[in-house]
């Protein structure tokens, strides 16, 4: 599984590399030490920056969601541009080779960014530990910090989704899903 994960990360290296970069930037902002071992290492942390775990709920939240947020915001327009150009406008290489290649590149980059949305399992587990342990919640409620307690409740679905996503990404499932979506479009839309 690890080998498959590393292979998918290298196939979709733009998104993986950028994911590591955003994590590094987030660590810089939060003053979390980062080891200078690069982002595309050949181990289970490929596509991520090697950093120490976050110590506070906010820093954990930022570290977990900021890189995915950046990749998502950049990945969606690229993915949609590629999908629209190739599958809906029906552009082929015979119509306009440059345009077709542009759409292909958009699709590839979009897919690589969207397949690198989720953090490492350690980071999301740390987030759950720091934010969703009973202590934080009780503290927030007892201290009259209703807003904080509400935020904790409202972010729970997203955190759960991220945790599930991290698990799937760890086993390269999102890559398979991405390929499956393209095959479905090719069969049913084209």
């Amino acid at each position: 599984m690890k080998l498959f994960y590393i292979i998918t990360k290298y196939i979709l290296f733009p998104g993986s590399y950028l994911r590591g970069l955003w994590e590094h930037i987030a660590c810089k902002i939060l003053r979390i030490p980062v080891e200078p071992v690069g982002y595309m290492r050949i181990d289970e942390a490929c596509g991520h920056a090697e950093h120490s775990l976050a110590k506070t709920p906010f820093s954990s939240f930022f570290l977990v969601f900021f890189p995915g947020f950046m990749n998502f915001n950049m990945g969606v327009p690229l993915w949609l541009a590629g999908i629209m150009g190739i599958f809906y406008m029906g552009t082929t290489i015979y119509d306009n080779a440059v345009l077709f290649i542009f759409y292909l590149v958009c699709l590839y980059m979009g897919m690589s960014l969207l397949c690198a949305l989720f953090p490492l399992s350690e980071d999301i587990y740390t987030f759950f530990e720091l934010v969703y342990n009973g202590e934080s919640f009780r503290e927030a409620s007892a201290g009259g910090k209703v807003l904080k307690a509400l935020v904790i409740i409202l972010t729970f679905p997203m955190a759960l989704l991220t945790r599930a996503g991290a698990f799937l990404e760890k086993h390269g499932v999102n890559f398979i899903l991405g390929i499956a979506v393209i095959i479905v479009y090719s069969v049913f839309v084209l």
Partner: peptide, 19 residues
Amino acid sequence: AIIFSFCGLVTMGLLSAAS
């Protein structure tokens, strides 16, 4: 990546109605 995603955004905007 930022330049590309901007191009993607513009393309998406132009093609969305027709798509």
